[in-house]
Amino acid sequence: MRTTIPVAIAFLTGVIVVLATWFRDDSFIGGLKQELIIWLTIVGGFTLLLGVVSITRVSWGSIQRRSDGWGYKALTLLGVFAMAIPSVLSPTWSTAFGRADGSIYDWLFNYLQMPMMSTMFATLAFYIASAAYRAFRARTVEATLLLITATLVMLWRVPMGEYFLNLFPGDIPSLLNTYIMNGVNLAVQRGIMIGAALGAAAMSLRIMLGIERTYMGKG
């Protein structure tokens, strides 16, 4: 029973969503699909509490044990509650509450969270440099080909590189770039995408028919 009911629910919901592809939105099945999407949002909202409980338990345990990096855990907890509590309090009590402009939540979001996110994203440039260095080391024929191709494509995408490549006679660099990006690169990407789409569809079918039950911890 513990297996049959989830499999039946997975099948029914899956069939409704798939069948809705061939029915208009104002039909019975189209309406059911919309209803299921709303249910998903509601269930997701309730599970948020699970997340808060998990992060609090893990962080509090780490602080109590004074394990490595416990200070970060304390900051994490402080961040969670400093943002959550004022944002759920009624703005009628104070302008600092709620999520409107000028509230505590708004201030923390604009002056702490956003800059930290931007900083994390900016570090990507350094990671790209170190990964590119490793990937482009010309140790084999394939790696050398990759290095030449990548250099050509990257040069074409910066003004100075474009200037130098334009010194070559005719449209050779431009044609070469177009061929690499819209020919070889696009063909490979499409191949991967077709394979992935088929894989996703096959997996969905296996789940709907109860052949694959690993997502329930079975099989």
Binding site: V43, G44, T47, L48, G51, S54, Y215, M216, G217
Partner: peptide, 11 residues
């Protein structure tokens, strides 16, 4: 995501 948390814990 909390929903993924619940699924992974069960798994």
């Amino acid at each position: 995501y909390p929903l993924v948390l619940a699924a992974c814990q069960e798994m």
